[in-house]
Computed example of a mutant assay.
Amino acid sequence: MSRLRINPTGTPAAAAVGPVVLSSNSLWNITNFRAPVVRRLAYEGWSLVVAAPATEQERTAFTLPADVMPIVLKRSGLNPLRDIGLLLRYCRVLHEIRPAAYLGWTIKPNIYGALAARMAGVPAILNVSGLGTAFLGSGLLARFVGLLYRVAFARAHVIFFQNGDDRALFVERRLVRAEQARLLPGSGIDLDHYRQVPLPEGPPTFLLIARLLGDKGVREYVTAARMLREELPGVRFRLLGPIDSDNRSAVTQGEVDGWVTEGVVDYLGTADDVRSAIAAASVVVLPSYREGLPRTLLEAAAMGRPLIATDVPGCRDLVDEGVNGTLCAARNAGSLAEAMRRMAVFDPKTLGAMGRASRDKAECGYDERLIADAYVGALRELAVTA
Rank of each mutant, 00 (worst) to 15 (best):
L141I: 13
A134G: 04
G104R: 10
N110C: 00
G130M: 04
L86Q: 06
I97Q: 11
P109R: 10
L88D: 02
G130T: 02
G121V: 06
R143T: 08
D83V: 08
A100K: 04
T133Q: 03
A116F: 07
I111T: 00
R143P: 03
R118F: 02
W105L: 11
T133H: 10
A120H: 15
Y90M: 09
L140H: 13
G132W: 02
L94M: 10
M119D: 04
A100C: 13
C91N: 15
L88Q: 11
N110I: 03
I125F: 02
V93M: 09
G130V: 05
V122F: 06
L141E: 04
A100F: 05
G85L: 08
R118A: 13
C91S: 15
G104S: 12
P109I: 01
I107P: 05
V145Y: 03
K108W: 05
E96G: 12
S138D: 09
L86W: 07
P109F: 02
A117C: 04
D83L: 07
D83Y: 05
L86I: 12
G139D: 13
I97M: 01
A100H: 05
P99S: 11
T133L: 00
Y112E: 07
L140M: 14
W105P: 07
V93T: 11
A101W: 11
V128H: 03
I97D: 03
A114V: 08
G121H: 10
S138K: 13
A120P: 01
I125N: 08
Y112P: 01
L94R: 15
G146I: 02
Y102L: 14
G130L: 02
A142L: 04
R89I: 01
P109W: 00
M119K: 03
I107E: 06
P123A: 14
L140S: 15
R98A: 09
K108V: 00
R89L: 03
W105I: 08
G132T: 03
G146K: 15
L103W: 10
R89Y: 00
S138N: 12
L87R: 07
G139Q: 13
I111L: 08
V122D: 10
Y102M: 15
A101E: 10
N127I: 09
P109M: 08
W105H: 13
L103P: 08
G85C: 09
W105Y: 14
N110E: 00
V93S: 05
V122C: 09
S129Q: 04
C91G: 15
T106D: 06
L141D: 05
A116I: 10
V128L: 09
G146R: 15
L115Y: 00
L136Q: 14
Y112S: 08
H95W: 14
G113E: 01
I125K: 10
N127S: 11
L94W: 02
L131K: 06
P123F: 11
F135N: 07
P123W: 10
G146Y: 00
P99F: 12
D83C: 06
L103I: 14
F135G: 06
R92N: 11
A134T: 09
L94C: 03
I84F: 15
